[in-house]
Nucleic acid binder design. Structure first.
Lengths: 339, 339
DNA sequence: TTGAAAGCGTTACCAG
DNA sequence: CTGGTAACGCTTTCAA
């Protein structure tokens, strides 16, 4: 077995209290003892047992991130941002997806309730009612923040991109190119991001005296597959819009792939704008014009916010940090009717 | 504060020992007491404090996964596989990347040494020497497994895809199409995956009486950017190969993008084969012919292996689980000289 | 500046 | 089947 604080105390001829102090509050110990103790510590490679420390200190020094789907590569950049900030503060990052977390009627909060983590960062705005209700328990709510997505009904601080502004940029860009007939390829029905982005499109178009076509398409999820499937619907549309704004880059890439398979060209036949600026957006053919959101920064901010919450900083339950987005003009958009 | 086992004991008129038993070993308690205790537990929503439990049980019920770069979406599928298996066994998954883990000369093992986790799954075969040495400490080595990548010098059980077989499939496919002049777009120098995949290509070509061109290109990393940059080199090659096998899908997609920008068409001018079958491979234009590795399964197997190790199952230090791969023929390959 | 000792919340051994 | 009671390894008063 590895050494305990008792061994170090014995080996360096002081009490466990002093060893503990040397390690946790070196300034409260005389220089000579400190050096003596540290010598023994280093020599034996002693490390405090964090379970014991945490039990005593009553905290876990770790945080749980919950995503809708761990397999979705979209979240990796957010993880990177979370991790960077957390690890700089000595906090561990646990990850899980909503499905596993909720499996077998388990509570979303078991980790919090069992004192395994100090807080929760939730990236899933589509939690089932039961789970949402749980989160609102008074001693819990102050230790969760939402990132990227959020709960429509509010109640938690959250960090998100400026989805509306993003869509305004997209619409303005297309209108400037000369497009009037613009469609919105929707994400999953009821998803907060989809709602917000659609509203952004509608508002921006209204500002130009335009409106979305009555026919909707999309409405599955944000995935590549959904995008490809939507291409079929698009093709059979009576009057085909000259441009499509997609609720996500994945949708846009899938959509482009579907169009291509049916002989329609981007941007010649249809201009395409995505949302997210995922890594591949710049590398698909043609490169995707899109709205860039800084997912890494989003993660970092969420982590910072949660850390402050945990540390006890008062934070209005409805605090929203909105991150700016920007338009990346690439090859998937051009003036209409260029054929 | 939340209730402790003492409160539950008092409330249900039994000892803490009995409450503990009811929760951990229900069969060792009479039905009547069990029911009485559970009633109180449910009524108050009591949950054991895992820090206390873990301190007592001397385990953490959690595992740390170390990736080279958390921001790389390639790993998300592996995380999903890891998480699925771990969570089914009540084990938490912590994630970090090598950079954060090693920051400030910190030990890779601090988590293990501080008893924060029971084991390590390492997805980074390129750890610095110091870190590798550490991992081999006798009490440590038996609690780490490698997944996807591995250490050239061996020493740890690992789960990996059959990289060589994959490249054989790729070469056979191209040769069958009529290609003789095939190049390999390399990954990062010294990376085990690159080494293995290159060897796979070389061997398979030799079996057909062919050899790689003397000129190499690639040699940065597995990224989209590296792929695009390689396209420049490719274009200035004296005798251009008719087909290129890429060390990864990201490289292939970036390469295709670079070729496209320079007016070369895939597959008409160059056939392209990737490796990994990332999600987007099927959706880029043209869809990428590639070698599919099941990353989710890879994660799941690694998790299972580690769990068994932790549980004390003896496992030869050089145990290697090799997962089959398959060829996905899509639009990026065709017979040479079709123009 | 240091040490003694009381916990932190569980579990598991040992009696009964 | 149940209860008393040592641990688990550390931190933090409280006194000296």
């Amino acid at each position: 077995m590895s050494l305990s604080i008792k061994d170090i105390a014995r080996l360096s001829g002081v009490s466990t209290a002093t060893v503990s102090r040397t390690l946790s509050h070196p300034e409260r110990v005389s220089e000579t003892t400190r050096e003596a103790v540290m010598a023994v510590v280093d020599q034996h490679g002693y490390r405090v047992n964090s379970m014991a420390r945490n039990l005593r200190r009553q905290r876990a020094d770790s945080v749980l991130a919950i995503v809708p789907d761990l397999g979705n590569p979209f979240f990796s950049a957010i993880f990177a941002g979370l991790q960077e900030t957390f690890s700089a503060q000595g906090t561990d990052l646990l990850v899980t997806d909503s499905r596993s977390a909720l499996r077998g009627g388990q509570s979303l909060l078991s980790h919090l309730r069992e004192a395994r983590v100090d807080g929760l960062v939730c990236l899933d705005g589509g939690l089932p009612q039961a789970a949402r209700a749980e989160l609102k328990a008074p001693d819990i709510a102050s230790r969760v923040v939402f990132a990227c997505e959020w709960l429509v009904e509010g109640g938690f601080p959250s960090v998100r991109s400026d989805n509306r502004a993003g869509m305004r940029l997209a619409v303005d860009h297309l209108v400037e190119l000369g497009h009037r007939d613009i469609a919105y390829l929707a994400g999953p029905e009821g998803n907060v991001l989809d709602t917000e982005r659609r509203a952004g499109v509608v508002d921006a178009m209204a500002a130009h005296g335009l409106a979305l076509p009555a026919v909707q398409f999309g409405r599955n999820d944000f995935s590549l597959e959904a995008g490809r499937a939507a291409a079929e619907d698009f093709i059979s549309l009576p009057a085909r819009p000259t441009a499509v704004i997609c609720a996500s880059d994945q949708l846009a890439v899938g959509f482009a792939s579907g169009l291509h398979a049916r002989g329609l060209r981007v941007p010649d036949d249809v201009s395409l704008v995505g949302f997210d600026d995922i890594q591949t957006a710049e590398f698909v053919i043609p490169p995707l014009t899109t709205i860039r959101q800084d997912r890494m920064r989003l993660g970092a901010q969420a982590a910072g916010l949660l850390l402050r919450q945990i540390a006890g900083a008062a934070c209005p339950a409805d605090k929203v940090i909105t991150l700016p987005v920007s338009l990346q003009i690439r090859g998937s958009t051009c003036p209409p009717g260029r054929d």
